[in-house]
Design a protein around this nucleic acid. Structure first.
Length: 476
RNA sequence: UCCCCUGUAGCUCAGUUGGUUAGAGCAUCUGACUGUUAAUCAGAGGGUCGCUGGUUCAAGUCCAGCCGGGGGAGCCA
């Protein structure tokens, strides 16, 4: 049915016109004032009900969560809390929400509690704001790439490639697991499976994206990825969405320039288009921080943090410099770090957090990591020790982007495969790219949910995806 | 997978060195009020204290095991 989005009515230019509101009741005060939200904005509209017009039977059922549709005149509000309100002429109760059973009441609920009510948490201000912004980020990502000459590439979700090396994979099979077909020597006969071989859910579209980039020039993927790691943290999901641009003829510096421009564009987009939702989340975060001890509070609130990122260049340092900074740091000298620091180790969370939150106080791009701690496809540097890799770290989240210039030299890549125990016949097609018209190219992966965490200030990744998939949990 | 914390009303939490009938705020219900802003005021209902076992005259409180939730670490995005 046709109805007026609340978002379109909150400005006063439609005063005097008859409007139709459909939405869900937030509160009903004084048996007269009905706050209704329809999801078009974080703001509610106030419906004013004449008790002569709407029966007591209906009024009793206007409880939090009930759905209604009403028509009436849009008028200037006599109250001070809002500019406009609707003088109700007709009101239809569409669906009741029994207050004894409906779990979302007008009070502060913990995020833990709402996580267990994921089917209803959209009805809260916090989650509706988060998911509006999540949509906005999806749209802005496609817009950025489209405006900059990239082509969106759909890489496979089910993959027969087992060389991606990004983590444990989910097996995909149509075999009867209680009674699988077996070969003569008693092993499960993989040839009988749907694809005639072992297949899995993808952990990354990067290798396929490289194939696209080496013909279309600039491509990006934006799709679901799956990791069967037993990770129990507030920053990991078993099913998450990833953006992976890949650009032909780009080197590591081009790659960093792209990643930084891209991230800052997205933050600006959120500030420009989701001001109401961000203002609400900013206040929410501020209230939450009040209960924290002073030394755990971030120096900048959400909005200030986003503005700072939008307006300032990221810090760029090499891994080797980062190690030097850490070795000269106060916490290192006072032995506050739990993990040792020496050239060659992978940076721990505590080290990354120090660099980003205490030392530079801004997003940091770390480049040129030791070859031994990075993936096989990253391009070997001239020093023979490091590779052309880059990670972008942001305050509060840690690593949000990981990328590299890819190894385009066939001989070097074949050597790397040997060193990493990857049989050439498994990635013959990836090696073919270096045999025929090879060229330097680079790309990165951005974890979409980590981006949404950063932009919304939410502290747990399970609160920025509608239905999170984590170990031991696939509810809904 | 490892370490730490935690489980008391629908929700958020308090509950002393073990001691009478387990409390508060919000939510709900009843009534009052009627231009309210998470309205207010008065009253009421609501509990197998996660589960199982143990110590004790006595366990929400102490001990053990199990189950659930959270935080941190590793792996990474």
């Amino acid at each position: 049915m046709k109805y007026d989005a609340i978002k379109s009515l909150l400005s006063t230019d439609k005063i005097g016109s008859t409007v139709t509101i459909c939405g869900w009741v937030r509160t009903f005060r004084n048996d007269t004032f009905l706050a209704v939200n329809d999801g078009s904005t974080i703001k509610n509209i106030q419906l004013v009900i004449d008790r002569e017009e709407v029966s007591e039977e209906i009024r009793k059922k206007l409880t939090t969560g009930a759905s209604i549709c009403a028509t009436g005149e849009l008028i200037e509000s006599k109250g001070s809390g809002q500019a406009t309100e609707v003088k109700v002429a007709t009101l239809e109760l569409l669906g009741e929400a029994n207050p004894d059973e409906f779990p979302i009441q007008m009070k502060r609920h913990s995020l833990d509690f709402l996580r267990e009510k994921a089917h209803l948490r959209f009805r809260t201000s916090t989650f509706s704001a988060v998911f509006r912004i999540r949509h906005g980020m999806t749209f802005a990502i496609h817009k950025y790439f489209n405006d900059n000459g990239f082509y969106n590439l759909h890489t496979p979700i089910i993959t027969g490639s087992d060389a991606e090396g990004a983590g444990e994979m989910f097996r995909v099979t149509t075999l009867d697991i209680d009674n699988p077909p077996r070969t003569e020597d008693g092993k499960v006969d993989e040839k009988e499976d749907f694809f005639g071989k072992i297949s899995n859910l993808t952990v990354s579209g990067q290798l396929e994206a490289e194939l696209g980039a080496m013909a279309l020039g600039k491509v990006y993927t934006f799709g679901p990825t799956f990791r069967a790691e037993n990770s129990n943290t507030s920053r990991h999901l078993a099913e998450f969405w990833m953006i992976e641009p890949e650009v032909a003829f780009n080197d590591l510096v081009d790659n960093m320039d792209l990643a930084e421009d891209f991230l800052r564009y997205l933050v600006k987009y959120a500030l420009d288009n989701f001001a109401d939702d961000l203002a609400f989340l900013d206040e929410r975060e501020a209230k939450e921080n009040q209960s924290k001890p002073a030394n755990e509070r971030p120096e900048l609130g959400l909005l200030d943090k986003l503005k700072f990122v939008a307006d300032n260049d990221f810090e760029r340092i090499t891994y080797t410099e980062a190690i030097r900074v850490l070795l000269n740091s106060k916490p290192y000298k006072k032995k506050k770090f739990k993990f040792p620091i020496e050239w060659g180790i992978d940076l721990q969370s505590e080290h990354e957090r120090f660099l980003v939150e205490k030392h530079f106080k801004k997003p940091v791009i770390i480049t040129d990591y030791p070859a031994g701690i990075k993936a096989f496809y990253m391009r070997a540097n001239e020093d023979g020790k490091t590779v052309a890799a880059m990670d972008i770290l942001v305050p509060g989240i840690g690593e949000i982007i990981g990328g590299s210039q890819r190894e385009e030299r066939l001989d070097e890549l074949v050597e790397k495969c040997k060193a990493f125990n990857i049989p050439e016949e498994h990635i013959w097609w990836y090696l073919d790219l270096r045999k025929f018209g090879t060229a330097k190219h680079a790309g990165f992966g951005l974890g979409f949910e980590r981006l949404v965490m950063f932009v919304t200030g939410m502290g747990n990744i399970r609160d920025v995806i509608p239905f999170p998939r984590t170990p031991q949990n696939a509810e809904f």
